[in-house]
């Protein structure tokens, strides 16, 4: 019997939306069943959310005080001890999964398939290379497959499942060499999470200052959108790094992406390729962002936002 194990990403309270996207990829494998493992210190609430993901048969809840924060060196040995029951172990290719899965793979002596964007068969996958400028079709060696899932390539599995929840104790000795100190969040407030948002309003260097970014936030709030930024805007100190969209930031696939004052460097475009509709507003008619935008408007972004605020 072939089963896939998906590692849940969560913050101790809420299941991250990336998990349901990884489940969609797992479903494409066409195996006998999909399990989700929640590694947490107190994970009942998260496990209940995971049990609702459509297509999941069983949620495995592993509770350990060491799992309060997602430290790869603690989580990896626990996943390794579960892996023998499965043919595939997948996690979302977020910073959580990227940090964790190679540690699991190496301990098990398996190579890893990073950023799966399409499943061709149980062992053949498409994945982006060269910042998405090429796609490699790769075949994993026979046996256990360890992979991360490019979340922008998959829609979240729906939320009408009813999986069983099974608490498992995993008996492994965990190292003491790593300590969590703190997490400083960029303070997105109540705005939707960038990777889960159906709409994203994004600002670039053209926005000009941290102060000016307020109008981006304001428009985003009006649309119920998440707030993104180009690397140039982050490097200039206009907005914290967790808003960065692009190859080195977040790769997103909202239904609507609105880029204000973003020129469209290759590394930024790599992060928005899968967006449904891209709108670009830029003063420079030759900006590369217009080559990928569905709707482009050559204009001053401040005037456009003012007009938009009135029109919406």
């Amino acid at each position: 019997m072939s089963k896939v194990l998906v590692i849940a990403e969560h913050d101790g309270v809420n299941l991250n939306g990336s998990t349901a996207r990884a489940v969609s990829c797992a479903a494409d494998l066409g195996l006998d069943s999909i399990d989700v493992v929640v590694l947490a210190s107190d994970g009942t609430a998260v496990a209940e959310q995971a049990a609702k993901i459509s297509g999941v048969s069983n949620v495995v809840l592993v509770q350990n005080p060491a799992n309060e924060h997602a430290v790869a060196a603690f989580l990896a040995p626990q996943i390794e001890s579960l892996a023998s029951d499965y043919s595939h172990v997948l996690a979302p290719s977020t910073t959580f999964g990227k940090d964790l899965m190679p540690r699991v793979a190496a301990h098990l002596g398996r190579p890893q398939i990073s950023d799966i964007m399409r499943v061709e068969s149980t062992h053949v996958f498409d994945r982006p290379i060269y910042a998405g400028n090429a796609v490699a079709t790769v075949e994993a060696p026979e046996g256990l497959v360890i992979g991360t899932v490019r979340t922008a390539s998959y829609k979240a599995a729906s939320n009408d499942g009813s999986a069983s929840i099974e608490t498992r104790s995993v008996d492994v000795t965990l190292p003491s060499h790593t300590r969590f100190v703190e997490l400083a969040s960029g303070g997105g407030g109540d705005r939707p999470d960038l990777q889960a948002a159906s709409k994203v309003v994004s600002g670039g260097r053209g926005v000009g200052s941290e102060e000016n970014f307020k109008i981006i936030y304001s428009l985003a709030d009006k649309l119920g959108a998440g707030v993104g930024a180009s690397r140039a805007a982050v490097d200039a100190g206009f907005i914290p790094n967790d808003h960065q969209v692009g190859q080195t930031g977040k790769i997103i696939a909202p239904d609507l992406y609105m880029a204000f004052g973003i020129s469209g460097a290759i590394q930024h475009l790599a992060g928005i390729k899968d967006a449904g509709t891209i709108v670009a507003i830029n003063k420079d008619a030759d900006a590369p962002i217009f080559e990928v935008a569905d709707f482009g408007l050559v204009a001053d972004l401040f005037e456009v936002i003012e007009e938009l605020e009135q029109a919406l």
């Binding site: 398996r110 190579p111 090429a134 490699a136 079709t137 790769v138 709707f295 482009g296 408007l297």
Partner: peptide
């Protein structure tokens, strides 16, 4: 144990839209 690259292709291109 190695991953085998079967082929490399160009990604699907986004079409430029309208102004």
């Amino acid at each position: 144990a190695a991953v085998k690259v079967l082929k490399t292709t160009a990604p699907a291109k986004r079409q430029a839209g309208i102004k």
